[in-house]
Structure formats: structure tokens, C-alpha cells
Amino acid sequence: MRVLVVEDEQRLARTIARGLELEGFVVQLAHTGSEGLWWAIEDDFDVIVLDIMLPGLSGYEVLRRLRHRDVSTPVLMLTAKDGDYEQADALDLGADDYLTKPFSFVVLIARLRALLRRRSPQQPAQLSAGDLILDPARRTVRRGGTELTLTPREFGLLEYLLRHKGIPVTKAEILRNVWDAHHEGPENVVEVYVGYLRKKIDAPFGQSSIETLRGVGYRLIDPGTGDGQSDNESGSTPR
């Protein structure tokens, strides 16, 4: 899940970004209203965290211009102001939620996940492939009756693959949505983490959920439904 954070207090912005990344979000930071508006229009995000008091364009103006352009991405407004009129102004302009500083990070995460659920009510509360089940809200993964322990990056990768179950995804798409839109490292980091996942979700259970599609990327399937055309990696990359 990709989130744009528009916050001019850079220390707070970095803190928010670190916390969101630990929860599996891919974060893009912007520190002015103009920069935030550009990112929100030019790129795709699942949700936007938008401060009201910004240099240049205010958060109100950014929001107004986004909605004028029919950008429907859910927006959670942040502000140091605490008053009914400020909240009403934000909601009237098209904000989806509102949080007053200082705020609990636990509450921020809960609000963001609620916005995502409301935006995509058709998406199941749990993601599954056979007896492999991932619960995004509880941050749990289990295969059959066994609960699995994944790192945040492994969890994000598995969630992305499950949300695109049966669909081939490229390494570039994975890097963009699980790492960072501007990831400058080698693409083989994806191969490494696919290997980590295979060791945890497949190898101990005699399953093969992640197909390698030569020259394309990867595809997650329900075990036993593959067409046998893929060239699966062994997942033997040492950690």
C-alpha cells in the first residue's frame, strides 16, 4: 500500500514515514503544498496524509485542487488546530478523515486502514491462497493451523502478491509498491526476498505458491493450480 505524506515538519514527517514503513506501507514524503499536489496528481497512492499548515499552498488548497481534478484518493488531514470549524472546512472540501496533533500513531494507522477498507469494500478482510491466509488488519500470516513469522518487508511482499493472485507482476512493479518508487538498488533484491518467502510459506509445507515467470516476474497461485509453464526458483538464497 502506497501512502503520500505531506508534512512540512521534517522531523515529524520522517517519524511518520518510519512508522508507516514498519507497518508495511511504501511512503513518499513531500514537505510543501506544491510538492504534495504534484505527487498526488502525477502518481498513484492508496491514501494521502495531508497537513493543513503548509508553506506555499495550504493543505486546504491542495485538497481543493485535488478534488477539482477528480483525484479521489482518500485524504486524512493533519493539523495543530483543534476546532469544529477547521474540521468542518476540511470535510467540506473533500477530506475523508481528520486527526489533530499531537496524535497517537496507533490511531493514525487504524484510521488509515479504515480509509483503505472503505475505499475498497469489495476486497476481503483476509487474503488467501489455498490454506495460506494473510490478515492485513491483524498483521498475521498462517498456513493451515501454523502461524508464520515474517519481517515487515516479507509481509508487504506477500500481501502485494496475494492482492494480485494469479496475475504476473514484474520486479519493477514489486519494487515500486513494496520498496519505494525511487528504489535505486539492484532488482535482484526481489529475488532474495521471494527466496525468503518460499522458505517460510512453502518449503516447510511441501507447497509451491510463488511461480517464477522467466523474463516476466512472479505470480502467486493457489497451490496445485499452476500450469507447469513457470521456472520456479529453489528459494535457496542464504539469508
Score class of each variant (00 low, 15 high):
16 I>L: 15
45 F>Q: 09
81 K>F: 00
108 L>D: 06
211 E>I: 00
229 Q>F: 05
118 R>Q: 15
88 A>T: 02
104 S>E: 07
104 S>F: 05
217 G>Q: 05
73 T>M: 01
220 L>A: 14
10 Q>V: 09
89 D>V: 08
28 Q>R: 14
202 D>H: 05
149 T>Y: 10
54 L>N: 12
175 L>Q: 11
216 V>H: 08
106 V>I: 03
104 S>K: 15
151 T>C: 01
108 L>F: 09
232 N>D: 12
159 E>W: 13
126 Q>L: 08
32 T>W: 13
34 S>N: 12
148 L>Y: 07
129 A>V: 12
55 P>A: 01
236 S>N: 14
203 A>D: 15
209 S>M: 05
54 L>F: 08
132 L>H: 11
110 A>G: 02
213 L>R: 10
40 A>Q: 12
108 L>P: 01
177 N>F: 01
190 V>E: 11
171 K>G: 14
23 E>T: 03
109 I>S: 04
13 A>D: 07
119 R>M: 07
25 F>S: 03
53 M>Y: 11
148 L>H: 10
186 P>N: 11
202 D>M: 05
93 L>T: 07
231 D>H: 13
78 L>P: 00
105 F>G: 00
88 A>G: 02
230 S>C: 11
90 A>M: 06
206 G>P: 01
201 I>R: 12
26 V>I: 14
199 K>Y: 05
28 Q>H: 08
215 G>W: 13
105 F>W: 02
177 N>S: 02
133 I>E: 04
48 I>C: 05
177 N>D: 06
21 E>Q: 15
194 V>I: 15
141 V>K: 07
98 Y>A: 04
59 G>W: 08
234 S>C: 01
61 E>S: 05
127 L>H: 11
47 V>G: 08
3 V>L: 15
87 Q>P: 00
2 R>N: 10
138 R>N: 13
115 L>A: 12
157 L>N: 11
194 V>K: 10
66 L>C: 00
38 W>F: 13
199 K>A: 03
61 E>G: 01
100 T>E: 03
23 E>A: 03
21 E>T: 15
188 N>W: 07
57 L>I: 08
125 A>E: 11
87 Q>D: 00
207 Q>V: 02
13 A>S: 01
131 D>I: 01
224 G>Y: 11
51 D>T: 08
117 R>C: 06
130 G>N: 12
98 Y>P: 00
80 A>N: 03
177 N>C: 00
114 A>P: 02
194 V>Y: 15
80 A>G: 00
43 D>Q: 14
152 P>N: 13
66 L>W: 07
220 L>H: 09
121 P>A: 10
196 Y>W: 14
58 S>G: 13
70 D>H: 13
77 M>P: 02
124 P>V: 08
2 R>C: 03
114 A>W: 07
102 P>K: 04
26 V>Y: 02
144 G>P: 04
17 A>G: 04
11 R>T: 15
6 V>Q: 10
123 Q>E: 09
115 L>S: 08
51 D>R: 08
45 F>K: 06
16 I>K: 11
208 S>A: 14
123 Q>F: 05
167 I>Q: 15
142 R>M: 09
179 W>R: 05
13 A>V: 04
46 D>L: 10
219 R>C: 04
213 L>H: 05
119 R>W: 04
60 Y>C: 03
